[in-house]
Amino acid sequence: MSAVQTEPATLSEEPPVSLWRDAWYRLKRNRLAIFGLCVIVLLAFTAIFGPYLTPYDFLGQDLEARNQAPSFAHLFGTDDLGRDVFSRVVYGTRTAFLVAVVVTAIALVIGTVLGAVAGFFGNPFDRVIMWLTDVTMSVPNLLLVVVINASLKTPIAQWMEARYLETLNPFYRETVWIDFLLVFGSMALISWPPYARLVRAQVLSIRSRPYITAAQALGLSNRIILTRYVIPNALGPLIVAVSAGLGTAMVLESAFSFLGVGVNPPTPSWGNMISDGLRVWQHYPHLLAAPAAVLGLASVAFSFLGDGLNDALNPRGSK
């Protein structure tokens, strides 16, 4: 009985114990993914602590020092009101992360619940939910966001004004919350369908995979089959989707802010900074370059990490 071997097994030098350790091990060997991860960690740190550490207030105007080129005093220079661009970019990072995390979390919850219900319980839930998904996906994102902005902004503002007059609570004076509320709501509304589709497809396909029948034929309990066979196989693609989704949400926030239907000045967002910078870029290119470069870097970082996670979590697809 001779054993024929067509593919040599590639074995790691120090075998890790679990799927997750193993995925981490593979991720570590992927330079681009690690670069992406480092950038993301740095940006996340900036988003959380950055605004407390910057030398200038992001709103602080210094009319003596307007439109300055980058220097040691102002790393990214100053804008037309003499505000420190570096501090504003740092605060824009907070805006970007806040929006991306909140929107992705909402979209993930909605998408996972709807997708799992559709995949697990089948019709009629499946039909209704998939119809909802298709309809949502077929509406142009920008159109939807513009409509939401146009139709809801004024009523919400009026309601807040009324609340303020009633309670005199300064919270209701802070119109910046309206921006965020609308951004969170509208972006979550357009972001959940991919998660719903993914989760539904995962549940459907894993449930009928031969290895699930094989596990049942081994007499394994439903609990073990769920935790060791179904979930680990479903989680990989979902984690990859979340990583990509965070990047997409960040770009989307910038795009909407750029177009004036997202976060509005004076709250800094990379998008509205790019919009401002674009008007004067021939004279003061740093005003455009600084936020654009950071946005580009963040976008690339999430995409590298997403690809790396995809390879690390799917040992079948990796080389």
Binding site: L19, R209, P210, Y211, T213, A217, R228, N233, L313, R316
Partner: peptide, 11 residues
């Protein structure tokens, strides 16, 4: 089972 490619848990 018939198909050894799909009858083992890939992860």
């Amino acid at each position: 089972f018939q198909d050894p490619m799909t009858s083992l848990n890939p992860v």
